[in-house]
Design a protein around this nucleic acid. Structure first.
Lengths: 349, 349
DNA sequence: CCGGTTTCTGTAACCGGTTACATCACCGTG
DNA sequence: CACGGTGATGTAACCGGTTACAGAAACCGG
């Protein structure tokens, strides 16, 4: 339907090979020929078929990124950070959400077949799928997910920041801390819980886990209501450490709606530092979401171009942001946790 | 490198045509043959090359979406709404941000060459580029952008909601309204300004325009500072109607930092209703961002499949959300504006 | 003026699938 | 038993580019 390289060749009175060369290579073609070809291409409004080109070159010039879920700003930020770098590196970006799709494995495999490399966020898909993809030779970078040997990975620091957060809550007087969020849903969350618990218990306080359906504001509201309904029997925990900001924001709403004062009656903390957290005065741990995406893009590019053989596993620094949901003083103090560290492991045989 | 259809054919002892058929068509192949082929494919872990398939079929099975900018939740939401529908329709989604890239036109053209259809958000790219793309026969759907004859479009309602907002501000006592935002940067914004101004002036009040560099929180803070520095000479406007929520949120920060009380001393409104707006108590107009993306995906699908010849231009309903930044009563009232309307225009010849 | 380079261009074989058409085996029927 | 019809499979021509290789033209120095 569209004009092809042969049309251009015919109009310019040259062969298709010459057209191909004239439109790509800087040299190896006479100025006059190039001129004729360029002119013909312009006349015909010729746009090379990427399909033909890609097939011939055996590459897609595209990267995929898979994320579990659409809700909330977290993944969006990572994706956007990723896109900005990938575009710079001249690669198209394919996105795929596995949210609620039971054929997620097939979708991801299908995506892998259209890309030169893939970034997988958190638990967008089961490990088997990832293994199958790496086995076929498609490079994979994991983000916010337990590293595996056959792929690069980028994570935000969890343990140290969770410990700092735990210390902070204890310092603010918490003796009973409720961790809100399902640790089985994400390795990140599990890690945070473990370190938070260690820090809190080290100080002689206790941690309980409040299960939630997902990581949405609604779940936060529901968790607050559940906690309130148990209030008479068990009393309210001194602090709610939520697995992400949206849960925490929902929590705040739910608690305040019931007349509970934060931070006087109980403390609330989140994780991520999304935009709304600032306006809600939420204490949280800032994750460098854009950077996670950006680093992933760089690592993937290296893998695709075989600049590097071994796999690396990066950990990006986070920051504890203390706001009014855990402190009465209006001043907002900030502390930086561990800085970027890089580990390399052995590559595939 | 990878195993191809010929490898499978060889191992199964059949021709490549049979393999192709066995793996796709339900019938037209003997059960035994299918079994042999399936087995061989499984043994070899064969994954069909999408490139080959796409080239042969002359289609990409992919849609693109172009947005101007990464900052803020607005475009992210639209993109995500778009992805969720596109994935359902079994199409891959390519994303591209034109933010700050001066070769945006080429990038978009390049994207168009990799897709069966394209969605363009707001002023991601100049009109010429869009015209060139539609001329080549690639379907285009515009979102949050002035409709053109050769493409579908989806917009959120602007005029009626802007008028409602204007009335509301006047009702709350505003006699001087400052509109914060550059109407030249977006047709949406220009439309809002026009209607807002009409409503405000109808009530005998006045509207001034405060120029800003972009639509970020930072710009909002700076706009607040600028207004404050002119305070002595001109006094503070009675109300700041901001072109989007992020400007308004920055405005709030800047004003409050200087001790200005909102809504007592001046009113502030935004546009979009991003998550943070709720926590900041910002009066705003809610746009159905996800729906904008979702509708665009559906329309694009129809264009690609030639289900429909004429172009449609849809307008989705918005909602005025009144919060504490324009009213002292703590209750949050809500009003719905116009509902979805659809107009059809003539198709391309 | 000739042979040897160098430089440009054309021919044709790919890349990995799909699919129109030819072929062939097998069926039932007259 | 010959024959037309049917259905499964193979052959080969695509899809639209890239690129190895060969051939031709231009250029060089001796």
């Amino acid at each position: 339907m569209a004009t092809t390289i042969r049309d251009v060749a015919h109009r310019a009175g040259v062969s298709i090979a010459t057209v191909s060369r004239a439109l790509r290579d800087a040299d190896s073609v006479t100025p006059q020929t190039r001129q004729r070809v360029t002119q013909a291409a312009a006349d015909l409004e010729y746009v090379p078929s990427q399909l033909g080109r890609q097939l011939a070159q055996g590459r897609h010039a595209a990267n995929g990124i898979v994320f579990p879920d659409l809700s909330g700003p977290y993944y969006a930020e990572v994706v956007l950070g990723y896109e900005s770098v990938a575009a710079e590196l001249d690669r198209s970006v394919l996105i795929l959400s596995t949210h609620g799709r039971r054929d997620a494995a097939d979708l991801v495999a299908g995506l892998a077949a259209r890309c030169d490399g893939l970034v997988v966020l958190a638990h967008a898909v089961h490990e088997d799928v990832i293994e199958r993809i790496t086995r076929r030779g498609t490079p994979v970078v994991l983000v916010a997910r337990t590293p595996v040997p056959d792929a690069d990975s980028v994570n935000a620091e969890n343990s140290a920041s969770a410990a700092m957060l735990g210390d902070h809550l204890v310092d603010r007087g918490a003796r009973t801390v409720a961790f809100v969020g399902d640790p089985d849903a994400s390795s990140d969350v599990a890690e945070r819980l473990t370190s938070l618990r260690a820090a809190v218990e080290r100080a002689g306080a206790t941690v309980s886990v409040v299960p939630v359906a997902d990581f949405s504001e609604d779940s936060g509201v529901r968790a607050a209501e559940a906690a309130l309904s148990r209030r008479r029997a068990e009393g309210l925990p001194d602090a709610f450490a939520c697995a992400n900001d949206e849960l925490a924001l929902g929590m705040l709403q739910g608690l305040r709606a019931a007349g509970v004062r934060v931070p006087e009656d109980t403390l609330v903390s989140g994780w991520d530092d999304v935009m709304a957290a600032r306006y809600a005065g939420l204490t949280t741990v800032r994750q460098p979401m854009r950077d996670l995406g950006a680093r992933a893009a760089h690592l993937l590019d290296q893998l695709i171009n075989r600049t590097r053989e071994e796999h690396v596993h990066e950990v990006l620094a986070t920051e504890l942001i203390v706001r009014t949901s855990t402190t009465t003083s209006t001043t907002t103090s900030t502390t930086t946790s561990t800085t970027t560290s890089t580990t390399t492991s052995e590559g595939t045989p």
